[in-house]
Write a protein that binds this DNA or RNA. Sequence first.
DNA 1: GTCTGTGAATTGACTTGGTTAAGAAATTTG
DNA 2: CAAATTTCTTAACCAAGTCAATTCACAGAC
Lengths: 214, 214
Amino acid sequence: MNAPMGLRERKKQRTRETISDTAITLFLEHGFDQVSVVDIAAVAEVSKPTLFKYFPTKEDLVVHRFADHQTVASSVVAERPPGVSAIDALHQHFLDGLAARDPITGLNDDEDVLAFHHLVYSTPSLVARVSKYLAQAEDALAETLAGALDSDREITAALLAGQVIATERILASVNWRRIVAGRSADEVHPEAVADADHAYALLRHGLAGVAPRK
Amino acid sequence: MNAPMGLRERKKQRTRETISDTAITLFLEHGFDQVSVVDIAAVAEVSKPTLFKYFPTKEDLVVHRFADHQTVASSVVAERPPGVSAIDALHQHFLDGLAARDPITGLNDDEDVLAFHHLVYSTPSLVARVSKYLAQAEDALAETLAGALDSDREITAALLAGQVIATERILASVNWRRIVAGRSADEVHPEAVADADHAYALLRHGLAGVAPRK
DNA sequence: GTCTGTGAATTGACTTGGTTAAGAAATTTG
DNA sequence: CAAATTTCTTAACCAAGTCAATTCACAGAC
């Protein structure tokens, strides 16, 4: 598919990676706000306008890495095997992510992943950027669910999409906090699975199904 | 409480309002990105550093107006009458908001409110700012729910908080879209109530309770 | 292998959001 | 009214992001 790529294309690709890698290295070393884009451009040996041609904002130098996650939830629903409900597919996919130590689940104790995570979540403008991606993921999921759910109310799809995205975000943040506290991914894994099962039970059966009324 | 306010305080208050009103007027007239902060400062007859002393960013000139909404959901739960469950209190509060045509519910057809709403939601940087407020509302609600819910799992509070905030955001956006389509708030009100009841049923009893499995 | 056309990179200047320091103005207190 | 303090202004500055004109380098034709 991309084997017959001209020298020009390959060079562009390489330049793009060089810029991003340079930026992330510098950010991890000195902090996002302490590194200016001219610093990055200088180290990467490109000009400032060139840098902005490859990445529209300074934040994109970092967050482009998980840009594709926008469509994951939607695809999971769209491509689930026949006979599997949308929510079962999402639940199973999250459990698979935990088992595979997918960084997006928060259950990953790799040093580099943790450092990257810390960079993102300790920088407000990067957090803002991430939540924009989450909003897009929610929109995409809502649209797919609208076709997959056939509830009597069309709003159900949007509501469920919002709840699913919020749920997975919170599960990931809880897992991540446990890892940051110094525990290993293997050690945390059983709790993470239990939390995920609990969270999806909440989505399936509501608060009345999991918590006593008070 | 604030009756014995010195001349200085009153003047500061007045300056603050002048700056914000000037900004919003100009934004509504020409668009957020087409008006620079020096323009605003000039019209409001203050210097640029003074403007930034009153409002830390350009976005805050607009969104400070619903800054207090951060704590509303949390307060509703904290101050609910005895014998009322947290989710019932939140549900009822949202219905009250609909009845009162509270702009935050999206059910308000006032021309100025609509214009303001459009300004915010058609400007990416303002949307980002709003979602930061929503995140804070979620955190505050999670903390209050943690004390109010006594589930066996502490994560339940965080999950429910995320779901509630997402739910109310989506309900508001649906209402708002109906109003933008040209319908009156009075006309839409019954549907908005039905949607809210449906959404809270989803929170209480889960997807299994409201939609057939597919 | 050289020429030529085209897309990309560079340079340099510019706009805007936001900050800082020093001094001027105005309000409070005595 | 005078002294002390807070606030405002002026002017300069930094960083993100954009734009126009020019230069560079690869690709294809000869």
